[in-house]
């Protein structure tokens, strides 16, 4: 046992903390000692928050977003535009899109991206659900907001191909220079894309 010079419950706590990403033995010890110094009430709140998150969060059966209800709060929201679906790789990409406060449609979370080199094929993604939603009608536009990586581009191209026969407008998010960035330090590929996707003013 790596932490045998500690009393058993403390050693166990340290051990459990080391499972977290980016937490090594030193950080785990510091966290554990901090927990010992916390008010009991706060420790209980932390423990129940951990357990609650694990127990109550599932996937929305419509868009596969993380949700504590069925369907998720976004799919339920009557103020949202049901004619637009934004396709993202992971639930945290959805959060990033939400933070823009400019999008008011629905989402579809793929839970991954196509990766020929890692052997991740179309069957590993939530594509059947997306096709079903589009086929059911009422969808005007599908926005492909997968990452601008090889995997994300492959996924976007693949989905665009699947959607072609369904006659729904399919768009891809633009790629370009980041806001507050500097053209001099932008890489050539991004800059070339930004030039391709320029717009009239």
């Amino acid at each position: 046992m790596a932490f045998s010079h500690y009393p058993e419950p403390l050693a166990r706590l340290i051990q459990e903390f080391t499972r977290l990403p980016g937490v090594g033995p030193k950080t785990a010890q510091r966290l554990a000692f901090f927990v010992l110094r916390m008010e009991e009430r706060d420790v209980m709140a932390l423990a129940s928050a951990l357990a609650d998150a694990k127990r109550k969060i599932g996937r929305c059966s419509v868009c596969f977003n993380l949700a504590d209800a069925e369907p998720c709060h976004i799919c339920r929201d009557a103020r949202r535009d049901r004619g637009v679906i934004c396709v993202v790789e992971e639930a945290n990409d959805l959060v990033a899109m939400e933070k823009t406060r400019t999008y008011n449609g629905l989402y579809h979370v793929l839970e991954g991206a196509l990766s020929p080199l890692e052997g991740v094929g179309p069957e590993a993604l939530r594509l059947a659900g997306l096709l079903k939603r589009v086929k059911e009608g009422g969808v005007r536009e599908v926005i492909l907001a997968t990452n601008p990586t090889v995997e994300g581009e492959a996924t976007a191209m693949y989905i665009a191909r699947l959607l072609r026969p369904l006659n729904v407008k399919t768009t891809r998010i633009a790629r370009g220079v980041p806001v507050g960035g500097d053209l001099e330090y932008a890489d050539e590929v991004t800059l070339a894309r930004a030039l391709e996707g320029r717009r009239e003013m």
Binding site: P116, V150, E153, A154, M157, Y158, R161, D187, E188, V189, A192
Partner: peptide
């Protein structure tokens, strides 16, 4: 520094495969 980016190989499903 990029010499040739071969961007087209990443922009077409067949070429990518």
């Amino acid at each position: 520094e990029v010499v040739r980016s071969h961007a087209r190989l990443r922009d077409d499903l067949l070429l990518l495969a």
